[in-house]
């Protein structure tokens, strides 16, 4: 009797492997290939068209001497930290409110999630009107009789980025709420019962038991929010177009403008490489903690 031969591992699940080839190719060419191409060209003095005249770190030196870029980075930091903290807090808070077995939950959930269906451009324009002193919130409050009331964040260099932040949170916290709500619903009801029998107050149950149990949900929310922060562009363009002056510039806008307005590819590539480096600086230690830590625990 001949022994059955072990089938060739390469040919197992052949259909699935063939079907995956286009996506694998896309990922390799678009993500890896284009990233490398961008990084390489950031060391050249490409202007309108990509060239390979290498100039070392010249583009980066120029970048970090440009005031507009420095303001962009500062804005991104403020916007990023605030929107991360506020989205998660507001989203979680709304989710816990919705989780109290209230009536009309579906309706309220839809209303809160609704802004997420709008594009950033529409959101930006809407909030530009709402925050406009001549026909927005300021006008309404003044017409109610409070004549000295002033609320014009989009026209004040010092706080313009917070005006953009309001719109971003209004748009994005609904999604975070839905994700958090799904996480809360995934908590076994008996955990709540056990905590009640133990006499643990509700807020303590949330902080010490439920939130630690929802760690994967928080990670999901974190990834989604972070991706949104780094690429913020259209919201700024629609709301302020970087103004007043250059007070609300963001890195993504800097990249696009260098590329298409100033025809300075080298500068744009240097800026986008810096954005990539920033993301990696945040991501690598996190990934190490999350995945490296798990392997050690097992």
């Amino acid at each position: 009797m001949a022994d059955a031969k072990r089938p060739n591992q390469l040919l197992r699940n052949l259909n699935a492997k063939v079907a995956a080839i286009p996506m694998v190719a896309t990922a390799l060419v678009v993500f890896v290939g284009c990233t490398i191409w961008t990084i390489v060209h950031s060391f050249t003095k490409s202007k309108l068209l990509p060239k390979t005249d290498f100039v070392g770190l010249d583009q980066y030196e120029r970048l970090w001497k440009t005031n507009k870029w420095l303001i962009s980075i500062e804005n991104l930091a403020i916007y990023g930290i605030c929107s991360l903290v506020l989205s998660i807090c507001i989203g979680f808070f709304l989710a816990t409110l919705l989780d109290q077995k209230i009536r009309f939950e579906n309706t309220i959930r839809t209303i809160i999630l609704y802004p997420f269906a709008l594009s950033f451009v529409v959101t930006g324009l809407t909030w530009q009107w709402i925050l406009n002193p001549d026909f927005g919130v300021q006008k309404i409050v003044r017409s109610l009789g409070w004549e000295s009331f002033a609320f014009d964040p989009l026209y004040n260099q010092d706080i313009v980025i917070y005006g953009i932040l309001i719109a971003a949170i209004w748009q994005g916290s609904g999604l975070i709420m839905v994700i958090m709500l799904a996480g809360l619903r995934g908590i076994d009801q008996e955990i709540w019962k056990a905590a009640r029998v133990d006499g643990i107050p509700k807020w303590k149950t949330y902080i010490f038991i439920v939130i630690p149990m929802m760690r994967p949900v928080f990670v999901t929310a974190l990834v989604l929010i972070t991706a949104g922060i780094v690429k913020v562009y259209d919201l700024v363009v629609a709301q302020t177009n970087g103004g007043p002056g250059i007070a609300s510039e963001v890195p993504a806008k800097y990249v696009i403008e260098s590329m298409f307005k100033n025809q300075n590819l080298g500068q744009a590539f240097a800026a986008s490489t810096m954005m990539l480096v920033t993301v990696l600086i945040i991501l690598v230690p996190y990934a190490y903690l999350e995945y490296g830590g798990k392997r050690r625990a097992k």
Binding site: K193, A194, V197, F208, I209, P212, M213
Partner: peptide, 14 residues
């Protein structure tokens, strides 16, 4: 003055 034991154990996993 009661203690309760649940089917799913309901332990605090963290």
């Amino acid at each position: 003055g009661i203690g309760m034991v649940f089917q799913s154990y309901a332990l605090y996993p963290q």
